[in-house]
Simulated scan of single mutants.
Amino acid sequence: MEVINASVLVNVSNTDLGQCDMYCRVILIILYSVVLLGGTTGMVLMSCMMSKRSSQSVIATFVLNIIALHSILLVSLPFRVSYYFSATWSLGSFACRLVSSIIYSHMYFTFVFYVAIVILRLLIYFKKLQVQQLKKHYAVALSIIIWTVGGLIFLTVFFLQYGTDPSHSKQQRCFEFYRDLKRKEIIVINYSMIVTMMITVVILFLLQLVVIFQLIKALWPDMWAHQEFRAQIKSFFFVLVIVVCFIPHHVFRVHFIQNYSERENSKLVLYNEICVALTTVCCLDMLCFVGGVVH
């Protein structure tokens, strides 16, 4: 830490309250490095495990999508670590916007596939859908639709809305697109995503708890021996990942939007960057499955 403090992290003036300071950057370097190491390990082990099983299920197809999303994010993390280590971005504004968009697109794409898995298992539990009706090509078609629609949305939002201010390209800094929150359309987009995620998570969380308690009551004390119970526990794990990794960012985002200002924002910037970084921790989900953390 002393080497970073003495030689590299001093590049940015502490008087610039709009930028993530030294303390902020040290936290982010550690957090992103842990995610990069743990996430890569989890991706490799889970990919090997799934290749051996050659599963044709719909759930497996969605999990493969999540693995692909995690892999894309993990490729972008070294750029973030390098930037926070040197405090200088030299790859241009387009590359900055691309790397920045990856972390947000990863969060929302992963959220969609998590929700798809949870809803699918809930429909099966409530007898609204039969396992025999589920075909892999349905999951592939749905995945293509999600990637296409989501890609168009993020292309529009991140490349036509965020980071378009000329001041972004004149500085050797990156990931400071929160400055665009002064624009009304950006505020509307943010609030829309916050409300959508909050409502979805609350509904799924409550439904999942009801299902798990019903199964415990019906199967006690041998519930772990039943595949249906284990499947619902895995679904609940995905909901918990959303709550732990994604919700803090969205809750704080409301406070950030309401209180951010150009003059006094150093603490808010710190907390906002940490909440954004926290969303990447979901990449450790596959490591939890492989390591047996999730039964």
Rank of each mutant, 00 (worst) to 15 (best):
residue 125 Y to F: 11
residue 125 Y to T: 07
residue 129 L to H: 02
residue 133 Q to Y: 05
residue 133 Q to C: 08
residue 134 L to A: 01
residue 135 K to G: 12
residue 135 K to T: 10
residue 136 K to M: 00
residue 137 H to V: 10
residue 141 A to K: 11
residue 141 A to I: 03
residue 145 I to N: 02
residue 150 G to F: 08
residue 153 I to R: 04
residue 154 F to P: 00
residue 154 F to C: 00
residue 156 T to D: 10
residue 156 T to G: 10
residue 164 T to F: 01
residue 169 S to Y: 08
residue 170 K to R: 06
residue 171 Q to M: 04
residue 173 R to W: 11
residue 174 C to W: 03
residue 174 C to R: 02
residue 176 E to S: 07
residue 176 E to R: 06
residue 181 L to T: 07
residue 184 K to F: 15
residue 186 I to N: 12
residue 188 V to N: 05
residue 190 N to V: 05
residue 193 M to F: 15
residue 194 I to P: 03
residue 195 V to Q: 02
residue 196 T to Y: 05
residue 198 M to R: 01
residue 200 T to A: 14
residue 201 V to F: 07
residue 202 V to G: 01
residue 204 L to T: 00
residue 206 L to N: 14
residue 208 Q to R: 02
residue 209 L to V: 15
residue 209 L to K: 11
residue 209 L to E: 10
residue 210 V to W: 13
residue 212 I to N: 06
residue 213 F to D: 09
residue 213 F to H: 09
residue 220 W to P: 05
residue 221 P to D: 11
residue 224 W to D: 09
residue 228 E to I: 13
residue 230 R to T: 09
residue 230 R to C: 06
residue 233 I to G: 00
residue 233 I to S: 03
residue 233 I to C: 09
residue 234 K to R: 14
residue 237 F to R: 02
residue 239 V to S: 00
residue 241 V to S: 07
residue 248 P to G: 12
residue 253 R to K: 11
residue 257 I to Y: 03
residue 258 Q to I: 11
residue 258 Q to D: 13
residue 258 Q to W: 14
residue 258 Q to Y: 14
residue 260 Y to S: 01
residue 264 E to S: 13
